[in-house]
Structures are given as structure tokens and as C-alpha cells.
Design a protein around this nucleic acid. Structure first.
Length: 541
DNA sequence: ACCGGAAGCC
DNA sequence: GGCTTCCGGT
């Protein structure tokens, strides 16, 4: 009994993060918590966490964006990062080896890539990560950024990820899926069709599928749509949750500081990378699920201008970065989501003690490692029950990182504790979230169905990573392969494709010439409420 | 370091 | 599904 309970408690304590928070008491639609990559998961995901850390200055010594490379970051202190992650997940036994395994799983998902040759250096595939969830994270601040911002990509640094999915024709041929578009956002024709994107999609988790999914979700959520009823899959109307606030919070420090989207176009000052600038606001909302919600009210208004800007920037970014639009959802018609911001928040008490199940998992391995556990000083007795007791280390540990930091740090934890309206939290959060930025969009500029034109990159070269060998182009995309694929186990399929397609990373053109992509979001950079984010991240700290 | 399979957990 | 835990291999 005790054990059981303990477990639960522990969870609560640990997962503080998971909760949506109560602090604010706002709840976001489910989709808000989903990411493309993991639509269903509500727990904090490692990449979210990494992003959080990256955005905080406090952790710069532990993990930071690599300058010069867009989306690339370096784990300066692997052990620390692992520790933080373990803390967040209540896995005291976490270490870099394990964490890195988790990161490796992102390779296939194309969320991350390893930068070869550079130790502890990975690169985000922002294409895939659309961060509806993390709008605030901005990867690049305008030139101001500290080290952490991923600046404009260097020539060599584009990201291209081998399209897993592209299996088929690949990439080369199939641009349709995502493709791109890029530069020309305004081209209606290109966009015109909406139908394109559905290639076949493999089951892979390619981005395309994912994003699509996301879109759907959104759409579904709001049916308001204007018209949206067209295609089953993609519908013209998607809704974006936006914040009302026009301006964001500029945080001087935070890389994410601000986004330019003021209300008007003038704001974009960020010529630098288009990608960065606008995007963020689209989906603003709270960060990871457990983190912070913004307060808000969310209403949305869209301005055509903004939309335009946004799209443009997006397009540019796509172009510049060779991002594939596939990931970006399209927003033909934006709608206002029914946000239910107010949810009852449950608050959970935080327990100082966490119980944790022992690591032992495998049946085979019976080795329970008490030894391991012993690693942690505290738990010494883990034997029978699978529960581990964890002392309140978190705070201590956390403090390590940010001992004096001040509010930012304190917030972190707080956020978790948001349940209780703590003053400090509120202060920050309120304001922070409160006004994420309200971009206004309007669909008009876009074509109803699709938004951008084709463009993406024409290709890219090998990219830094060049991980996969070139694949041979097959004449037909997909059919055959598909069939074959069907025969083989998914894993194999993946692998196969993976191997095969690398070259196609950039599928840009649609065979038909159409561009499937509508997307909008894409920019990697999110805007953020720095604080909010920080808070989130902080939770660990 | 890094990679990725396998098994297990939640 | 997303890790976590192990582990053999490079």
C-alpha cells in the first residue's frame, strides 16, 4: 500500500511538470500540447526539455546553441543535462548515456540530428518540430542574442534531413508532400491545390504526416471553420490560437526574447532571418504541458498584413534554411479556436519525496541493482517494492544550477507549482503569457487551401550531416517501394527508406508542380515568453 | 563518443 | 508512443 501510494505521490511530485498547469489555470486544447512529433503525448518530451534549457540563459553553460549553425546546439555538460532531465522525469538514474539514447531515437523521427564530428553536438530539425507548442522558443533572437541563439544559418548549415518518408520517390520526386514552397508565398496557384500532399504517406513518421495530423486536429477542434470542410484531411481552415497580445516580452537576455510581431508589419525588424521573425506567434501557448500556460485570454485576430509577413518570412526561412514546409501546417483560414482556457486546474501538491520505481525493468535481468540505486545516496532500500524513495533532492540539485538566479530560476519550480498561485509566478507568468503576441493573421492573403508556393530548396547539398548515402532515384515513387515496404516490417521499411532516400532531402517540387504545402508555421523560432519558458525549464532547475 | 537493437515501463 | 535501461559493437 504504502508503496503504491508512494508511487503515485511521487509521480505527482515529479510530474509536476506534467500538469497543465494550474497556475494559471488555463488549459489549452489538447492539441496545444501536442507536437507534431508526438501528437499524443502529453508528457514533457526530451526535445521540449532541451529546447527549454536552450532558451534559458541559466543553462547556457550546460547546453547552448552553437553559433553559426542554425538549430545546432552543444551539450556542454552532458552529465548535468542528464541530471536535469532525470530530475524532470524523476529518473535519478538518468545519465548521458541514456539521455543520448533517447536523443538517438529522435534521429529517425527526424527531430534531431547528430552533428558528426562534434562532440555532444546535435541539431534540431525545426522543420519537423513545428513548434506550435513552443512558440516561445525562439531560436534566434535578432542579432542580439547571446550565444544561444541560433543565428542565421551558415551556408553550410542548412538542415536537411533525409526524408524518411520520402521514401518513395522520394524525395526527389515527391516534393509534393511538403515541399516547397517557399519563397513564394503568395503564389496562389501553387497553392491552389490542396490536394497534394497526401502522397502516400508512409507510415513513417515523417513530418508530413505529422503535421498533417496536427492540422487536422486543429481543424477539427474548431469547426468553425469557415469552410472548412473540404478535404478530409486538410482543410482549409485551421485555427490558430493566438494570443492577443501584440507584443511580447522582450527579455533582454533571453534569446527568445522577443518576437517582432507587433501588430504591424513594421515590426519585423528582423531581416536577418526571416524565419525567425514572425512565426512565433502563431501558436503561442504554453510550453510544455506542464509548464506554463499563459494566461490568457486568447483571442485572435488576424491581420492580413501580418499574415503576409508571416508567410513571407516563413517562406523565406524555408528557402533560406532549406526547410521543408511539410512540417508547417497550413493555415488557410485561420480560425479562432475555442480555447478553453479555463480549466480547473488541479493542483498537485508537491511532495518532497518521490517514489520511484526501481529501474529494474527487464524481467530477464534480475539484477536489481541495488547498487545502482545506491548510486543515489538516498535510496537505500529498494528492494522489495518497486518503489524507490527519493529524497527531495530536486530542489537542492536544482539550486545548483541556479542558485542565485533569482526569479527565473525560482520560477521553474514554481511553475510546476503553479497550481498554487504563487505570487512570484503570477507575476511573471501573468505578464508573460498574457501577452504573447498577437499576430494577426488573416487568411485572405493566403490561398484558401494552400499557402505557399513551391520553392524550397532546390536541393541541398549534402549537408553537413550527410548521413545517408545517396539513394537511387526510382522512377516511380512510391508505388513499388511501397508495396515492398508493405511486405516488410515497418522497421525495415524505415530503414530501407532511410537509406535510400537521403538524397532527397529536399523534395521540393511537386511533380505536378503544385505545391502542397500550405504551411505557415515554420519558423523555427519561436517567440516566447521568455519567462514562461524559463519557468518551464526551470522546473527542473 | 556514438550507434542502434531489444526489452520493459508508463 | 516516448522514453528508460542495458548492452554489444564501432
Amino acid at each position: 500500500m504504502a508503496a503504491e501510494e508512494g508511487r503515485e505521490k511521487m509521480k505527482a511530485g515529479c510530474s509536476i511538470v506534467d500538469k497543465p498547469e494550474g497556475g494559471g489555470g488555463y488549459h489549452f486544447p489538447e492539441w496545444a500540447y501536442k507536437t507534431e512529433s508526438s501528437p499524443g503525448s502529453r508528457q514533457i518530451q526530451l526535445w521540449h526539455f532541451i529546447l527549454e534549457l536552450l532558451q534559458k540563459e541559466e543553462f547556457r553553460h550546460v547546453i547552448a546553441w552553437q553559433q553559426g549553425e542554425y538549430g545546432e546546439f552543444v551539450i556542454k555538460d552532458p552529465d548535468e543535462v542528464a541530471r536535469l532531465w532525470g530530475r524532470r522525469k524523476c529518473k535519478p538514474q538518468m545519465n548521458y548515456d541514456k539521455l543520448s539514447r533517447a536523443l538517438r531515437y529522435y534521429y529517425n523521427k527526424r527531430i534531431l540530428h547528430k552533428t558528426k564530428g562534434k562532440r555532444f553536438t546535435y541539431k534540431f530539425n525545426f522543420n519537423k518540430l513545428v513548434m506550435p507548442n513552443y512558440p516561445f522558443i525562439n531560436i534566434r533572437p535578432n542579432g542580439v542574442v547571446p550565444q544561444s541563439a541560433p543565428p542565421v544559418p551558415t551556408a553550410s548549415s542548412r538542415f536537411h534531413f533525409p526524408p524518411l518518408d520520402s521514401h518513395s520517390p522520394t524525395d526527389d520526386a515527391q516534393p509534393g508532400r511538403f515541399s516547397g514552397p517557399s519563397l513564394v508565398p503568395s503564389n496562389p496557384e501553387a497553392l491552389g491545390d490542396g490536394g497534394e500532399r497526401k502522397p502516400d504517406l508512409p507510415e513513417l513518421e515523417d513530418g508530413s504526416a505529422d503535421w498533417r495530423r496536427g492540422v487536422d486536429l486543429m481543424g477539427s477542434r474548431n469547426t468553425a471553420g469557415a469552410g472548412g470542410v473540404n478535404h478530409q484531411k486538410r482543410k482549409p481552415d485551421i485555427m490558430l490560437p493566438l494570443f492577443t497580445r501584440p507584443s511580447i516580452y522582450p527579455d533582454p537576455h533571453s534569446p527568445f526574447a522577443v518576437s517582432p510581431l507587433p501588430g504591424r508589419g513594421g515590426v519585423l525588424n528582423v531581416p536577418i532571418s526571416p524565419a525567425l521573425s514572425l512565426t512565433p506567434t502563431l501558436f503561442s501557448y504554453s510550453p510544455s504541458p506542464g509548464l506554463s500556460p499563459f494566461t490568457g485570454s486568447s483571442c485572435f485576430s488576424f491581420n492580413p498584413e501580418e499574415m503576409k509577413h508571416y508567410l513571407h518570412s516563413q517562406a523565406c526561412s524555408v528557402f533560406n534554411y532549406h526547410l521543408s514546409p511539410r512540417t508547417f501546417p497550413r493555415y488557410p483560414g485561420l480560425m479562432v479556436p475555442p480555447l478553453q482556457c479555463q480549466m480547473p486546474m488541479e493542483e498537485q501538491p508537491q511532495f518532497p519525496i518521490k517514489l520511484q520505481p526501481p529501474p529494474v525493468g527487464r524481467k530477464n535481468r534480475e539484477r536489481l541493482e541495488s547498487t545502482e540505486e545506491s548510486a543515489t545516496p538516498q535510496l537505500a532500500s529498494p528492494p522489495p517494492p518497486r518503489v524507490k524513495l527519493e529524497p527531495p533532492v530536486d530542489k537542492e540539485a536544482e539550486r545548483e544550477e541556479l542558485p542565485a538566479k533569482g526569479k527565473d530560476k525560482s520560477e521553474k519550480e514554481e511553475n510546476s507549482s503553479m497550481a498554487a498561485p504563487s505570487t512570484s509566478l503570477e507575476e511573471e507568468k501573468g505578464p508573460v503569457f498574457a501577452r504573447p503576441a498577437a499576430p494577426s493573421w488573416h487568411p485572405a492573403p493566403l490561398v484558401p487551401t494552400q499557402a505557399l508556393g513551391p520553392a524550397e530548396e532546390s536541393q541541398d547539398q549534402g549537408e553537413s550531416s550527410g548521413e545517408k548515402p545517396p539513394r537511387e532515384p526510382s522512377g516511380e515513387p512510391g508505388a513499388q517501394e511501397k508495396r515492398e515496404d508493405a511486405l516488410m516490417p515497418p522497421k525495415l521499411r524505415l530503414k530501407r527508406r532511410w537509406n535510400g532516400d537521403r538524397q532527397a532531402d529536399a523534395p521540393e517540387e511537386h511533380p505536378n508542380g503544385r505545391v502542397p504545402w500550405n504551411g505557415v508555421l515554420g519558423s523555427p523560432h519561436l517567440v516566447a515568453g521568455p519567462k514562461a519558458v524559463a519557468a518551464a525549464a526551470a522546473s527542473d532547475a
